[in-house]
Design a protein around this nucleic acid. Structure first.
Length: 208
DNA sequence: CCTGGGATTTTCT
DNA sequence: GAAAATCCCAGGA
């Protein structure tokens, strides 16, 4: 698997956020941890775009937490949510324009055993509902050992976490569904933006 | 099938 | 002090 994958470079991440979020679908996230390699295929993303986007952390301005959203494209922005889970984002747009893409779900491709172990689900559950392993932003981070320590990591040069693609498997726009974002009811008119994208034929989705 | 509540801690008001 | 880009489980229909 891994030898068919080619690492994504800065050119890929410099796309406009609303183009990059769907373009990330079908791409691979590779997590290197000691001698272990975990690979996931991205199946669901959400865009957070600009200071005016009331769903975005950046709508509150530049703070200690959100300053990475104002940084250069291709960095990892990771934060703790509800005191318990992490969310992994890819910073987009040029410096000083706050935007990012949240990775909401992946399909596990390699390292299944470790992914199972990290998620700590009862065996009955993971056998009956295998998609529950990685079908949500918090679940994905738990499964792939992503936490605050990787905040600010440069995905273009990092050895710990990076993105790649398989040129033999491309995604067309007909395979992508656009919907409203999840969990942002407070965002006024921005809650209706169709800035969530997922692969129609992929079962690893947080919800339809 | 669906609904509601609890867990837990950082961040910003 | 309240809210949060979530997840899991229990309970009822």
């Amino acid at each position: 698997m891994k030898n068919k994958l080619k690492r994504l470079n800065i050119d890929f991440f410099q796309k406009p956020t609303l183009k990059l979020a769907p373009a990330l679908l079908g791409k691979y996230i590779i997590r290197q941890f000691k001698n272990q390699t975990l690979i996931g295929k991205i199946s669901e993303t959400e865009a957070y775009y600009g200071s005016h986007d009331l769903a975005s952390h950046a709508s509150k301005g530049k703070t200690k937490r959100t300053k990475l959203m104002f940084d250069q494209p291709g960095l990892a922005y990771i934060y703790l949510i509800y005191g318990m889970y992490y969310c992994f984002n890819i910073v987009t747009e040029k410096k000083d324009f706050p935007a990012a893409v949240l990775i909401r779900s992946v399909e596990p491709i390699e390292g299944l055993k470790t992914i199972h172990k990290n998620r700590k689900l009862p065996i009955v559950q993971s056998e009956k509902f295998p998609t529950r392993l990685t079908n949500g932003p918090g679940k994905f981070c738990q499964a792939f050992m992503i936490d605050k320590k990787l905040n600010g990591e440069n995905l273009i040069s990092s050895q710990k976490i990076y993105l790649a693609q398989n040129y033999q498997k491309t995604i067309t726009s007909s395979q992508i569904k656009k919907t409203k974002r999840i969990g942002i009811d407070y965002a006024g008119s921005y809650k209706n933006k169709l800035w969530r994208y997922y692969l129609k034929d992929n079962p690893f989705i947080s919800q339809k």
